[in-house]
Write a protein that binds this DNA or RNA. Structure first.
Length: 380
DNA sequence: AACTCGGGGAT
DNA sequence: ATCCCAGAGTT
């Protein structure tokens, strides 16, 4: 880092100034009502890679359904995921249940009160352990998230790449030196609050009260920090999706595998195709080619490449396109419609009427497909 | 150390 | 479009 470590006097002045600002400016958030470790824990897990505004409603519903560690440990997984539906990173929800069971079995039902104990819980890493330890138990542990790294990198002129894991120790050392032993919980939350509301990514400079402590402001280099290497853009993947209806007007849904992306969630059958094939279908089977066909007039033509082997007669047109971006993938999905007169059930499949869709846990991409299909076929 | 894992809001 | 968000687990 470019700046020297602060002396005792500067550290004390910073703590006082920061905590004063925090107590006057902190947002009134539901999980700040008290420092109960269960509430802090749930909120911190929800807040991982997720904005405050998004979390608030989920937090209220979660606390209503699972108010205690015990209720979470005994939670039905489907119900748990239903509460989490739409929030993303679903392993967070599954790990919560695992950790709640750990608390029941390894800690006699009482939330662990040491950093090591907290850190041993599934889904709790260095950041969350530090947050709970400091906020709920007053331990002088840093809580290093994206906000804190941005703020500290500006205050001290940290030039190392914050995207690298090895840079973590630099922030850890700085924070252990400047953290308040009187009120580490508020100190950590204050630093995050500064990052979220004042020293934002696009902020040109710090407010006056913070400037005396800021290396970047002093050198007019606010836009140089934090240093962060770029991530690769999501890889394109192409799918054909099949909306398949049986004689009972039910739709076929498939449950994803137990591990990996969108684990155990339900979706219309998907078949990955080469980008060239995808474009062929998109152009040759346009809606315009068969405008006269309603859902009642299924074409005799079949689609050999689409879910081959299933006794389905496909309509020779597509029902629009959906794209969905994940952290590392971009899905392109072209939607088709077909009917079956035969009773069949693929592995991991389920037939369900549309009124009951809300009983299952659908990822956003599946919700988009449902919406696109209904929009396209109902207007014609 | 690199990759996997969701979704959305701000710019 | 791009960034990035109160990150953690796996390989």
């Amino acid at each position: 880092m470019k700046s020297k470590m602060w002396d005792e006097q500067t550290i004390h002045a910073f703590q006082t100034t920061l905590l004063d600002w925090y107590h006057q400016n902190k947002r009134n958030l539901p999980w700040r009502a008290d420092t109960n470790p269960y509430k802090v824990w749930i909120s911190e897990i929800m807040l991982q890679q997720t904005r405050v505004d998004t979390v608030i409603d989920y937090y209220y519903r979660f606390m209503e359904e699972f108010p205690t560690v015990k209720s979470l440990a005994e939670a039905n997984e489907e119900k748990l995921l239903k509460v989490w539906e739409g929030l993303g990173y679903y392993s967070r929800a599954r790990n919560l249940k695992v950790a709640a069971t750990q608390i029941q079995e390894d800690f006699n039902g009482e939330f662990p009160q040491t950093v090591e104990g907290i850190r041993s819980l599934k889904g709790i890493g260095p950041y969350t352990a530090g947050a709970i330890a400091s906020i709920s138990f007053g331990l002088p542990e840093p809580a290093i998230d994206g906000n804190v790294m941005r703020v500290i990198s500006r205050l001290f002129g940290v030039e190392e790449d914050i995207a690298k894991a090895s840079t973590y120790k630099i922030f850890d050392q700085i924070l252990r030196a400047i953290i308040s032993y009187e009120n580490p919980g508020d100190m950590n939350q204050a630093l995050m609050e500064v990052g979220a509301t004042v020293s934002t990514p696009a902020a040109k400079e710090c407010p006056e009260w913070l400037k005396p402590f800021c290396y970047a402001c002093a050198h007019d280099e606010h836009d140089k920090f934090p240093v962060k290497s770029k991530k690769a853009k999501p890889k394109d993947v192409y799918y054909l999706a099949g909306v398949i209806e049986n004689k009972e007007h039910e739709h076929l849904l498939i449950q994803r595998p137990e591990n990996g992306l969108l684990a155990k969630m339900w979706h219309y059958p998907l078949e990955e195709v080469e980008p060239r094939k995808y474009q062929e279908f998109k152009q040759l089977w346009q809606k315009e080619d068969s405008k006269q066909l309603s859902l009642d007039l299924v074409a005799e033509d079949t689609v050999p490449e689409l879910f081959s082997g299933w006794p389905v007669v496909w309509q020779k047109r597509h029902f629009g396109e959906v794209t969905h971006v994940f952290s590392h993938l971009k899905w392109h999905i072209l939607i088709f419609y077909g009917r079956t007169q035969t009773e069949f059930l693929p592995e991991h499949g389920k037939w369900l009427d549309e009124q009951s869709f809300s009983d299952l846990v659908f990822p956003k991409v599946q919700q988009k497909i449902v919406q696109q299909f209904n929009k396209t076929h109902k207007v014609e």
